[in-house]
Amino acid sequence: MKISDNTHVAVIDGERFVWLRNSGTEADPQLEAVDTPEMDGTNRSQGGQRHSITSGEPAGNDLDEAAHVAAVAEWLNHQAKTNKIENLIVVADKRSLGELRRHYHVELEQRLVGEIGKEMTNQSLGDITAAIAAA
């Protein structure tokens, strides 16, 4: 997948959110970190459908992760609705990606140029760039 000029990249898992932007060109992408906002993952009701596999009861950590991902989605939706992003690539582990998709606003969906279902929050910018290029 190509990373066009000024494309933003959101790298997400259940605990972390890394906000990046391509400051290079499509031919020579250079991802750089952009100030990542603090996420308020206190809306645990966002993960109300998640249950522990073993007990059938809501799992606390699962709810925390779902609330974090929902907070990221809300922030991304706001960025799209206020025209602060034009193009977006989302890189997230499969579980977080599924949760994100539940919260995408139509404005965000229109700016979404790609998704990669892979855990990359602890990877280097070079590794993230290579994973996107290979997708």
Rank of each mutant, 00 (worst) to 15 (best):
G56D: 01
A70N: 00
T121M: 09
P58E: 04
V11G: 03
K118W: 11
V11N: 04
Q49C: 06
A130F: 06
M120A: 12
A80V: 05
V69S: 09
L76E: 02
Q123R: 15
D64T: 05
K84E: 13
I132K: 03
L20W: 02
T42V: 05
A130S: 10
R102S: 08
T121A: 12
E74W: 08
E119G: 13
I89Q: 04
E65Y: 14
S52K: 10
R16V: 12
N6Q: 04
L108D: 02
V18G: 02
A133F: 06
V69Q: 06
R21D: 00
T121H: 09
D35Q: 00
A135N: 12
L97C: 12
P29F: 04
E115D: 10
N43P: 00
T129V: 11
E15T: 06
M39N: 06
Q110V: 11
E107Y: 13
G117I: 03
R21N: 06
T121K: 09
V90T: 14
E99M: 15
R44I: 15
E99W: 10
G60A: 11
G48S: 07
S4C: 00
G14F: 01
V91P: 02
L20G: 08
T54W: 14
G48N: 08
A73Y: 01
K84A: 11
N61G: 08
E32A: 13
Q30D: 12
E38Q: 09
D35R: 02
G117E: 07
D62E: 13
W75P: 00
E107I: 10
G47L: 04
I3C: 04
K2N: 00
V69Y: 09
L20Q: 08
A92T: 05
A71P: 05
G117T: 04
D35M: 00
E115M: 09
H105V: 15
D62P: 01
A10N: 03
H51R: 04
A131P: 12
K81T: 11
L112Q: 07
G98L: 07
G60T: 11
D35S: 00
E86Q: 14
S55Y: 15
H105G: 09
D28M: 11
I53R: 14
G14H: 02
A133H: 06
V91W: 00
E86T: 12
E26C: 04
G98Y: 09
L112I: 02
E74K: 10
V106I: 13
V18M: 08
L20K: 02
V91H: 02
N22K: 04
